[in-house]
Amino acid sequence: MNTLTKSDAQTLSTEQARPVLDVIDVTIRYGEKPAINKVSLSIPQHRITAIIGPSGCGKSTLLRAFNRMNDFIPNVGMEGQILYMGSDIYARQVDPVEVRRRIGMVFQKPNPFPKSIFQNVAWGPSINGFSGNLEARVEQSIRRAALWEEVSDRLHESALALSGGQQQRLCIARALAMEPDVILMDEPCSALDPVSTARIEDLMFELKERYTIVIVTHNMQQAARVSNLTAFLENGSLVEFGETDQVFTRPQHKRTEDYVTGRFG
């Protein structure tokens, strides 16, 4: 099903970027029911990869497999391999905590801790044994999340006083403070207004210079606007994966065409 064969991935990686995440034949089940069925794809470095598909197609499940957040859901079973920089993140000796330190995540609804803005950003580095200048790290992260101008004078006020869009950028800053390689975004704008959404999309453009971003979205315009690569999932199977331009303008599969042109879903 997948358009991207192993050799394609190699050409892509030599031409553009090497893969950060390699998904190989992954099947994920809730109990007996497969939610993701034999999906393989390679996520290149310093690119934004969008995962699209109708609701319930398993895109969030797939995303959460990338930093082992599915570990917290009982009765989830996984087959296949997910390689991060060539190492299997589900290998027995690997500590999931270590995975999540390198692969950060931003959730659908902004979920700042009910603490100060500073504490929100500083907590990640401090529990992970960061010994440098914490204040500098916090400032840098908030700046990279394009939030510094708005909060620099009230770092020690509650994060819950921020607007929804600001809270979501704070959550991005919080993830950046860990200096991850990859940032997973699970429909990060679905709870936000159009203006806040535009700001986050701009931010993603800036962030891809330093980070690899994987975003799940149900909003096709958003995928078309922000991503370099797009993967289209349907019923847990990967239908098409390729350059975003190509997926949206010259899809190779009828199902993809129907979906991106809004004929179903």
Binding site: Y84, M85, R210
Partner: peptide, 21 residues
């Protein structure tokens, strides 16, 4: 930023083992 290395970057280091205990 990620560097090319042969070692598994995810393997628990000494500090990780300590907090695991």
């Amino acid at each position: 930023m990620p560097q090319v290395s042969t070692a598994n970057p995810l393997l628990a280091g000494a500090s990780t083992r300590k907090y695991r205990t």
